[in-house]
Design a protein around this nucleic acid. Sequence first.
DNA 1: AATAGATGGGAATGCGCTTTCCAAGGTAGT
DNA 2: ACTACCTTGGAAAGCGCATTCCCATCTATT
Lengths: 337, 337
Amino acid sequence: MAVRLADVAKEAGVSQATASRVLNGSKRKPSEEIADRVRSAAERLGYFPNAQAQALARSTAGLVGLIVHDIADPYFSSIARGVQHGLDGTGVQLLLSSTGRDPDVELGAVRSFLSHRTDAILLAGSRGMSGDDELAAALTRYQENGGKVVMIGQPLALAGGIQLDNQGAAAELAQELLKLGHRRFAVLSGDQSLATARDRVSGFVEKLESSGIAPVVVREGAFTRDGGYLEMADLLRSNDLDLESGQVCVFCANDVMALGAMTAIRESGLRVPEDVAVAGFDDIPTLGDLVPSVTTVRLPLEEIGRMAGEFVLADGDDQRRFVVSGHPVLRESTRKV
Amino acid sequence: MAVRLADVAKEAGVSQATASRVLNGSKRKPSEEIADRVRSAAERLGYFPNAQAQALARSTAGLVGLIVHDIADPYFSSIARGVQHGLDGTGVQLLLSSTGRDPDVELGAVRSFLSHRTDAILLAGSRGMSGDDELAAALTRYQENGGKVVMIGQPLALAGGIQLDNQGAAAELAQELLKLGHRRFAVLSGDQSLATARDRVSGFVEKLESSGIAPVVVREGAFTRDGGYLEMADLLRSNDLDLESGQVCVFCANDVMALGAMTAIRESGLRVPEDVAVAGFDDIPTLGDLVPSVTTVRLPLEEIGRMAGEFVLADGDDQRRFVVSGHPVLRESTRKV
DNA sequence: AATAGATGGGAATGCGCTTTCCAAGGTAGT
DNA sequence: ACTACCTTGGAAAGCGCATTCCCATCTATT
């Protein structure tokens, strides 16, 4: 890249130091006349500061890293959008890594972020992280060096961030479904090594049990659309649900699972909600446009992302945790018949 | 950040040059014994190269910038996922900017990418860019300085990239719908200042007209879910469709618009496809799980992103254009009754 | 055995910028 | 009028690394 600060300085007939002070928010403001000269020189030459060099000199990069499981998943893309908004206008850029939930890729991403000296790392979604994990170690070292780690969605011993009250919200949902008169439940739990899935399921099931009801069946599977589809199809094939005894309400640990499950239900010739009621979790954007519309727990995903984006810019030692709660949204898919 | 290459070198008892050669893929490979010493020293100290400094010294950053209109839109998030995949294993990191289609934000993002000396800039989605645009100017300067510009989805005079044959695919869709027996069409065109929307609509309409059919009505609106919803609702209220004369097939310039439109249709008490048939464009992931399933044009979005991600790493002067075609997927929403 | 050539390691320079630290000029206070 | 202080611009020292020379040590050639 061609034009450097030194060129601008020469063009303006001032020292490089002065040029730097004019063009980049320094404490010291040169006189208005000189400033004008510098600015117009910069303009004329088409000067762009080299962020790398600035980062090196300032030892702060103006970058934050965001790690998500899958950017194509509406859950994460909504969060990403929020983060982006939270960062708007600050000049901070977002480094994105979509890891496909692969721990190695995740570790690689964190390492890369460390290398790029991102000012903060945002981790969205939960992961089974044991304390002696390499990932945990890398993050800890990062923090020791002044980096900020912010969790989105799941707490982490070592970091603050935005938490979701998955358990509480799931309990609320269970309560509402009970109120509607549902008594027979199945649970598609997703991958129980994920804290998010675990909390949602435990919140739901415990609430049921405290009302004296045990789910007919709880099935584990992938925490994805296909996971929901496959498990539901399998479940229907197994006949464990004993649908002759009446409608069953299936709680899916997230919305995309619910989507898959609903397709499986339809493909086996059953109706939602008449034969099988379905509830999801997250309230991803398209959910309201479905037929039947799907009961879920509304999570302010974008807002969560925004909070995280803003929080990231705050004081580096701020380790607060914000808990965001979600609330049930009852729609047609859980109509009691 | 604490530990530098110099520290590693000292720890290993070698010069910084040697340490550098060992740790970062240099041509010259020091002897195996020395290399081991250096590597173990690096390990012991927990050394991470400073990407900023490397970038400065190497004058290449290992970054590419991706600009999308809205990362929460499945169209773009699918592409982003593909790009990420295309970059996998290369060590290149993705700088993401979701601009909300705001030209100023877009320009800001490009400027920021220039500052960060990204090796390439990927622009997804179309934009009304006149030749004398500031954005075009910035991109041109970027190219002159060795940066690579890659368009995804829309051609741009100054850059290569992956194009979509929106027009051809839309024509194919029209053809198929005609084959199904549809004769009365409405078009929700989205924002016609976007080349993507324009091409899709023109391809569709021209095909109709070459068969002697003119759409009953073409309505412009936002290229979003809400745009589809609002225009459709409005359209139904206006009664321009004259539904008593029979089923109308509504072509929406993208899938999320179709989603919104379908909700509007249902809310007004009509049925899809019995009263109004609906077709979209893109084949976003959730589309097959809907009821009724929605006819659309399948675009290999993720594949497109992946191609772009890989293309980006190719020779800087490679200005080729790849044209990706899409094909109709007929589903229930356009069943002829 | 003598020398050209190859190999391996180190000192030093530069990437582009920020930021002390200095010096010079100005202002105010007594 | 003189000292004390504030303001302004400039010189120069890094920030952490890659890389170009350069020198020393080895190997191959005749």
